[in-house]
């Protein structure tokens, strides 16, 4: 749900930022023309949702403009006291994280020894992964070792998560520890 209230001051600031960002990123455009175009064609009647850049740890605010079920435009959030509307080249192109044709859109499976991916549905993937996890876990689970209660498996590892949301990292840590995983690591180590 979008919880942003654009008052008049913010709206004026936004329009200014739009023109500036366009001039930087859409090279070759006439600034005025680009501005007019963006007002009429791109972001008119678009929904604006605030987000935080998904790249570095600065945490710049970004506004995502969506319309007709696609992302039509993104720009620095002028209200953020971190970046005050400015963005670097990565934050500026965040729209392409959505629009890139390289995005995965289907679950893919690779069988042992195979040289290709196969499309599978989510239900099959969930079920099969849960089964593999259980098989490995049941086979390798250690309840007691050298007189200590250890409740662990050293045969399952989990890596990554620095790009996940806090709520996701919380669930991931809870799930993995809950399963007895000790090989739990992510990018802070590397």
């Amino acid at each position: 749900m979008v919880e942003i209230n654009l008052n008049r001051r913010q709206f004026l600031k936004l329009s200014g930022a739009t023109a500036a960002t366009l001039a930087v990123v859409e090279l070759g455009f006439n600034e005025k023309e680009a501005y007019a175009k963006s007002k009429e064609l791109k972001i008119a009647r678009a929904t604006v949702t605030p987000t935080i850049c998904c790249f570095c740890g600065v945490g710049c605010g970004i506004l995502v403009h969506t319309k007709d079920n696609t992302v039509v435009y993104t720009e620095g959030d002028p209200d953020s006291p971190v970046n005050e509307g400015t963005l670097c080249s990565k934050g500026t192109t965040i729209r392409q994280v959505y629009t890139s044709e390289k995005r995965l859109t289907k679950p893919l499976y690779r069988a042992p020894g195979s040289d290709k991916w196969e499309e599978k549905d989510w239900e099959w993937m969930y079920k099969t992964i849960a089964q593999r996890t259980k098989e490995t876990r049941d086979k390798t689970f250690v309840e007691k070792e050298n007189g200590f209660t250890v409740n662990k498996t050293e045969a399952i590892a989990s890596l990554g998560g620095a790009a996940l949301d806090n709520e996701e990292t919380y669930l991931l840590a809870k799930m993995m520890r809950g399963l007895g995983v000790v090989y739990l690591e992510h990018q802070a180590r590397i």
Partner: peptide, 23 residues
Amino acid sequence: INTEVFLLPAASSYEKDGSVSNS
């Protein structure tokens, strides 16, 4: 190579709700 691989497509940062903690 006999590893079975499951590749699950994840949503990007602005296709979901949640918080992040910056530096």
